[in-house]
Measured scan of single mutants.
Amino acid sequence: KWTITVQGEEAIKWAIKVAEARNLDYTVHIDGDQAHITIE
């Protein structure tokens, strides 16, 4: 299990796209213009 933090709307969209493309189980916690994405 690991967490990445991305900043900015484009980076958030990209990170989610990558997680979905790899069929990963993930949760997103949005904090202002940052998102913390935890991959199970």
Score class of each variant (00 low, 15 high):
Asp31Glu: 12
Ile4Met: 06
Glu20Arg: 09
Gln34Phe: 15
Ala11Met: 13
Ile16Val: 07
Asn23Asp: 06
Gly32Cys: 11
Glu20Lys: 11
Gly32Phe: 05
Arg22Gln: 12
Ile30Gln: 06
Gln7Met: 12
Asp33His: 06
Ile16Ser: 02
Ala21Leu: 11
Lys17Tyr: 08
Arg22Asn: 13
Gln7Lys: 12
Ala11Cys: 15
His29Gln: 12
Asp25Thr: 14
Glu9His: 10
Ile37Glu: 00
Glu20Pro: 01
Ile16Gly: 01
Thr5Asp: 04
Ile30Gly: 03
Lys13Tyr: 10
His29Phe: 13
Ile12Gly: 00
His29Met: 12
Ala15Glu: 03
Glu10Gln: 09
Asn23Ile: 05
Asp31Tyr: 11
Thr3Arg: 07
Val6Tyr: 03
Gln34Ala: 09
Ile37His: 00
Ala19Tyr: 04
Ile4Thr: 02
Ala21Met: 12
Glu20Gln: 12
Ala35Gly: 05
Leu24Tyr: 09
Ala19Val: 14
Thr27Ala: 06
Thr38Cys: 10
Thr27Tyr: 09
Asp25Met: 14
Asn23Leu: 08
His36Leu: 12
Asp25Asn: 13
Ile37Leu: 06
Ile4Ala: 01
Asn23Cys: 15
Gly32Ala: 06
Thr38Asn: 05
Ile4Lys: 01
Leu24Val: 05
Ala19His: 01
Asn23Glu: 06
Glu20Trp: 08
Thr38Trp: 05
Trp14His: 13
Glu9Cys: 15
Gly32Glu: 04
Arg22Val: 11
His36Arg: 12
Thr5Ile: 14
Ile30Thr: 04
Asn23Ala: 06
Lys13Gln: 10
Glu40Ser: 14
Gln7Arg: 11
Trp2Phe: 10
Gly8Ala: 03
Asn23Phe: 08
Lys1Gln: 10
Tyr26Ala: 02
Ala15Asp: 01
Asp31Ala: 07
Ile39Leu: 08
His36Ser: 11
Thr38Arg: 06
Trp14Tyr: 09
His29Val: 15
Ile30Lys: 06
Ile37Thr: 00
Gln7Ser: 12
Thr38Tyr: 08
His36Pro: 00
Ile12Trp: 06
Gly8Ser: 05
Ile16His: 01
Thr38Gly: 02
His36Gln: 10
Ile4Cys: 15
Asp25Arg: 15
Ala15Met: 11
Asp25Leu: 14
Leu24Gly: 04
Thr5Gly: 02
Ile39His: 01
Thr5Tyr: 10
Thr27Lys: 09
Ala35Val: 13
Gln7Leu: 13
Ala21Phe: 07
Ile16Met: 05
Val18Lys: 04
His29Ile: 15
Ile39Trp: 07
Ile37Cys: 04
Gly32Asp: 05
Asp33Leu: 07
Asp33Thr: 09
His36Glu: 09
Thr5Asn: 04
Arg22Trp: 15
Ile37Gln: 00
Trp2Met: 08
Ala15Thr: 04
